[in-house]
Nucleic acid binder design. Structure first.
Lengths: 142, 142
DNA sequence: CGGAATCCGGTACGATACTG
DNA sequence: CAGTATCGTACCGGATTCCG
């Protein structure tokens, strides 16, 4: 039964006063979001969702701009949270494959709306940035 | 169950053969996600989506654990991106109100799926964490 | 008095070098 | 190839100070 979830969605839609929601739950959810709402986590999640299984270096190439350290760290974190599985093949050239779990896939699906939003609003964001610059007298070097 | 999410999940599953996607667009979207996928941004976004308009201190109270500095900084960033509007009332006790723009509201709606996911999978994550601990025999003093 | 800018200590991050 | 180790740096958090 997803009544709570529907209620939550409706509340979001009408932006009104929040019904009695467990502040404890709220805090837990916030904490969970804090861990998951990381830029590297999100991008890795997306890449893995698209590519299926990938090796360490493959991942490093797909996720442009990440350092090995952060890649390792983020992958470990995601493994801890149960979002990815790490499979080590004990062969002479070491081979480690990363793959999303069902939990990871479901998060990817949930996050899909944000990617769509990002694609749709690229232009709007750029305009907003330009407008902000103007508002703050862009020429000011200070 | 949410049909859209399931459909997205299926699409994600078979995305290996994704149609020609512009790598330029991909990079831009990635960069945009990098800015938006920040834990404080997400939580502030959620609080503002629920509460409508809030003053600085109200926000500081609702967003548990944030420092004034990060709150100011994140709000400025969100203002730059066009997610929130900042209204200053030039009165004796200073009053500054923050409110989501349409863009911010749409992002909140897009991110709603992630909040629902978080609520649904709180238990699963905890279990995954416990399982990971066991796998790595936590007792190991390393 | 509320909101933001400033200084300072800690931590997380990036780049490089090294190991199995 | 897939990490770990080390170090310099940039960012984050806390307290203080400043401004309206």
């Amino acid at each position: 039964m997803n009544i709570d979830l529907l209620k939550h969605a409706q509340v979001q839609a009408q932006l009104a006063a929040e019904p009695p929601k467990d502040p404890q739950i709220q805090a837990l959810v916030n904490e969970l979001i804090s861990r998951v709402a990381d830029k590297w986590t999100m991008i890795i999640l997306d890449v893995l969702a698209e590519q299926g299984a990938l090796r360490f270096t493959q991942l490093a190439n797909k996720v442009t701009g990440i350092s090995q350290k952060m890649l390792t760290q983020t992958l470990r974190e995601m493994e801890r949270e149960g979002l990815v599985t790490r499979t080590v093949y004990p062969v002479v050239p070491p081979k480690v494959e990363y793959r999303l779990t069902d939990l990871g896939l479901s998060l990817g699906a949930a996050f899909c709306g944000v990617w769509i939003w990002a694609e749709q609003n690229l232009g709007a964001i750029e305009q907003a940035r330009a407008a902000y610059k103007l508002r703050n007298n862009q020429g000011n070097g200070k």
